[in-house]
Write a protein that binds this DNA or RNA. Structure first.
Length: 424
RNA sequence: GGAGGAGUGGCAGAGUGGUUGAAUGCGACGGUCUUGAAAACCGUUGGACUCGAAAGGGUCUCGAGGGUUCGAAUCCCUCCUCCUCCGCCA
């Protein structure tokens, strides 16, 4: 959500931004609503001041045992008017809030302008595609052949877009999550968090998933609980409605959770295999930073995620998303795309965003400057470090062998206890 | 799930309809004293929004939301959270 005053004073900036992101804003309606609201607030506060003064007066008259009936009668009228105004103001507030909540963040000036993923800018590549003396198979083939992935079983138990991992496949998933957390906590200085997997409406609104993206979420019936779509929600809300002393910044946290997404708009997309699931695991990186440090922290965060891919020896590229391809809350986003040899393409495995004060404002997360002074909103950053399921795919595809076995990258061997998943 | 109890400022803890945004204590900050520190003493000390160039005004805020009233931290209703006991349970 944007700062109301800033928004009001920079409507042209937002019109321009909407154009870049490919949406339209009804700014005339906003102007009208805002004008009525402000005038009404000013008038009502004057009435309240009058009432407060009269209340003191009444108290004094009563103390002196004098008659205050005339004043009380007058205030009765005033109170009635205040009540009506307050109701109208509440209506206008709600309308204004609803409007502001649906406006996306303003892209940073370094973000390429463009309507779609085609306009994204490749920043760098690492490594090289592995060479095969046979045609590499897609992960569902490799997984099934090695007996580590059972999709029919998942369909029976739950339905489409769910997976059952078996034997070394289950072990690999667990090994990856542990490895990620160990690197981020031991080498990158993040504090490990294990949060709830169910979150409430306020948390989702604070993290900018609601009200706009309800259709992408699973909700638990008859409760205010939703299945978390990403632990970004939980980590962000760790400090909701809190003011953090500046000397505690930056705060770096990481969490492993399951993530649940309805994939409402993805019918027919990536239906084979486990690339796009209703449930997947992810290790998330999250930072609360001083506003002036957020862009250097952003680069560092992307580097933290890249480190994982490098340690695993997986070929990948780093992409700067264009305005039209960015998420709602982001001001700037890098995606990491890992090489999948079966389809000869890069696929997203991490998305690292600087949301600046956008989420912090929605959730009321401030910092108090060292020398005193006015508190201000922190900047928040999030990134996958990494998506576990997609890393599983990348390892299985990139390290598959002609005989159907799968080599284990060196860094994972202590976690797996073997150096190769045998062909079944 | 059943029965009780409680939610007040950074913390502890008063306050049950009228100059109470809130006593008092602790903490924190500034000062006096001291070679330095402690102790003692003096003073300052929530936040959000808003009008104003500033000085300085104003509104809101005692878990949340509603209600009663001229006026609510105080009375009523709903909800949330925490604590105690019982039951159930990984």
């Amino acid at each position: 959500m944007h700062d109301l005053n800033y928004f009001r004073d920079h409507l042209d900036v937002f019109a321009e931004m909407a154009k870049k992101r490919g949406t339209v804003l009804d700014l005339d309606a906003f102007r009208k609503l805002d004008k009525e609201r402000r005038e009404l607030i000013t008038a009502t506060e004057q009435l309240k001041a009058q009432r407060n003064k009269a209340s003191e007066e009444i108290a004094r008259l009563k103390k002196e045992k004098r008659n205050a009936n005339a004043l009380i009668a007058e205030m009765k009228q005033v109170s009635e008017r205040i009540k009506q105004s307050d109701e109208r103001i509440a209506e206008l507030d709600a309308q204004q809030r609803d409007f502001l909540l649906t406006i996306p963040n303003v892209p940073h000036s370094s973000v390429p302008v463009g309507a779609s993923a085609a306009d994204n800018a490749e920043i760098r590549r690492w490594g090289a595609p592995p060479k095969f003396d046979f045609a590499p198979k897609p992960h569902w083939d490799v997984g099934e052949r090695a007996g580590i992935l059972d999709l029919p079983a998942a369909t029976k138990i739950t339905g489409a877009r769910f997976a059952v991992y078996k034997s070394w496949g289950a072990r690999l998933e667990r090994a990856l999550a542990n490895f990620f957390l160990d690197v981020h906590t031991r080498e990158h200085g993040y504090t490990e968090i294990l949060p709830p997997f169910l979150v409430n409406t306020a948390s989702l609104t604070g993290a900018a998933q609601l009200p706009k993206f309800a259709a992408d979420l699973f909700r638990v019936e008859n409760t205010d609980f939703w299945l978390t779509p990403t632990s970004e929600v939980e980590l962000h809300n760790l400090y909701r409605d809190e003011t953090i002393p500046e000397e505690k910044l930056p705060i770096h946290v990481t969490a492993w959770t399951a993530c649940f997404r309805s994939e409402a708009g993805a019918a027919g997309k990536d239906t084979r295999g486990i690339l796009r699931q209703h449930q997947f695991q992810k290790v998330e990186l999250f930072k609360f930073t001083h506003p002036q440090k957020s862009y250097e922290e952003h680069e560092a965060l992307v580097g933290n995620a890249e480190t994982i891919l490098q340690k695993l020896g997986l070929h990948y590229r780093t992409v700067l998303l264009a305005t039209g391809d960015m998420g709602f809350a982001a001001a700037k986003t890098y995606d990491l795309e890992v090489w999948l040899p079966s389809s000869d393409e890069f696929r997203e495995i991490s998305s690292c965003s600087n949301c600046e004060a956008f989420q912090a404002r929605r959730a009321g997360i401030r910092y108090k400057p060292k020398g005193g002074g006015k508190s201000d909103f922190v900047h928040t950053l999030n990134g996958s470090g990494l998506a576990v399921g997609r890393t599983w795919i990348a390892v299985v595809e990139n390290y598959q062998q002609a005989d159907g076995s799968i080599l284990i990258p060196d860094v994972l061997r202590p976690y797996m206890g073997i150096d190769r998943i045998p062909a079944a």
